[in-house]
Nucleic acid binder design. Structure first.
Lengths: 219, 219
DNA sequence: CTCAGGACTTGACATCGATCAAACATCATA
DNA sequence: TATGATGTTTGATCGATGTCAAGTCCTGAG
């Protein structure tokens, strides 16, 4: 059984690896909230335990075993988030931090009860895919909102930020996962995009913020 | 914020103090599962933090502050147990160990949501009182089942053992908290007592086992 | 009243996960 | 190509929690 610290490293490495092959050490240190030196020595420990491959001055990559553990942690995290929102009625802006703690304490037995209670969902409140008990989560091809041309109609799929303030903003303007909307205008010079969620007032947001929102374009 | 280890020590000292003034060091070491030396040094640490008063070779007693923390831990533990049974449908024989982990990970916010969801209950599935958010739990005067004379009619109030095997036995014979029953016979020489839960077959159990079941005598 | 054995304490030390400061490597660019 | 910004590694060290073994205290049997 990995320690809480190890679980956190594995999870963060997994998330940093998305896209790139190697997770950079610097990013990892920031992600787990430790100094670079700590990250280096911990990653060496992970490598000794065959959970990761470490390439000095290049980065770190999870092994098969490490990936499996990371996905289990992610599954716990995301199921807990959904549970907190759906069953206990917490606000989606605050569940991330709660889940961060609970994901290390919950047993498989309880987790599967929750999974059943929720009807085996496949995404959490932020639209992030919930990995299945074994194997990898399915990957959908999503488009960042800032890449959407005017008049595009699409559906919000995923909000990639856990900042409570941002999440509250998103919620307030109805841009939560599942919402359909149309792009009213897109202006790179102004660094802004305006979208109109169906049945809502239009919202304008900066392209940086829009980049954190992933959408599924409606054909 | 006390560490998980400290929370466990406080909780165990609180439970050991019940009845006696001082919790014995030996019992504490066994309860938290460490060697006596570890318990001694940890208790000194607690004393330094003003959470306990330590009397060498006599025992340890919680201070006001220590008691407050211990009750919070107990409240978390017992609410979680009830939640696991009522909401997630786990068996009461297995929730103790689960709660043992979760009690250190759950936030006040989530806990109060659970409390509300459960309708502010005042006992857990084992009949143990759930301490209120602040202050002490009410103490009811209960009688151990082995002290009940034949023909006594009473109600099971509390089962003071967390052993899954014992709890399953109790459950199987319908001796769960809330059940009314009548004592059919009591035989100290045979070290046995036979009780008949209403609407159930009679059960015979040893006096030691009966001593772990607390009942409220019906006037 | 004594003293042996069990209970408890002490002190030396191990391990884990973290820190910090300083040495070091890499790379883009002036 | 030299240089500085940036990122990485090393090594000393810390605090929390634990072990173990030796020493001390207390109690009850003789």
């Amino acid at each position: 059984m990995p320690t809480i610290t190890v679980e956190n490293y594995l999870k963060q490495i997994y998330l940093l690896q998305r896209g790139g092959e190697l997770a950079p050490m610097g990013g990892l240190a920031v992600a787990v909230g430790v100094t670079p030196g700590t990250a280096t020595s911990m990653v060496k420990t992970l490598a000794d335990a065959n959970l990761a491959d470490y390439e000095p001055r290049a980065g770190v990559r999870l092994t098969e075993a490490g990936t499996r553990l990371a996905l289990q942690v992610l599954r716990r995290h995301r199921l807990i988030e959904l549970f907190l929102v759906q069953t206990l009625g917490l606000d989606w802006s605050e569940v991330h931090d709660e889940a961060e703690e609970l994901e290390h304490a919950i047993s498989d037995k309880v987790l599967e009860k929750i999974d059943t209670l929720l009807g085996h969902p496949d995404t959490d409140p932020h639209g992030d895919p919930i990995p299945p008990p074994t194997g990898s989560p399915r990957q959908e091809k999503l488009t960042p909102l800032n890449d959407c041309a005017p008049d595009t109609t699409a559906q919000i799929a995923r909000v990639r930020d856990q900042e409570p303030a941002f999440l509250r903003f998103v919620d307030k303007h109805g841009l939560t996962p599942g919402t359909h909307f149309t792009v009213e205008s897109q202006n790179p010079s102004a660094d802004a995009i305006t979208v109109r969620p169906h049945n809502r007032e239009p919202v304008t947001l900066g392209l940086a913020a829009a980049g954190k929102i992933m959408v599924k374009v409606v054909e």
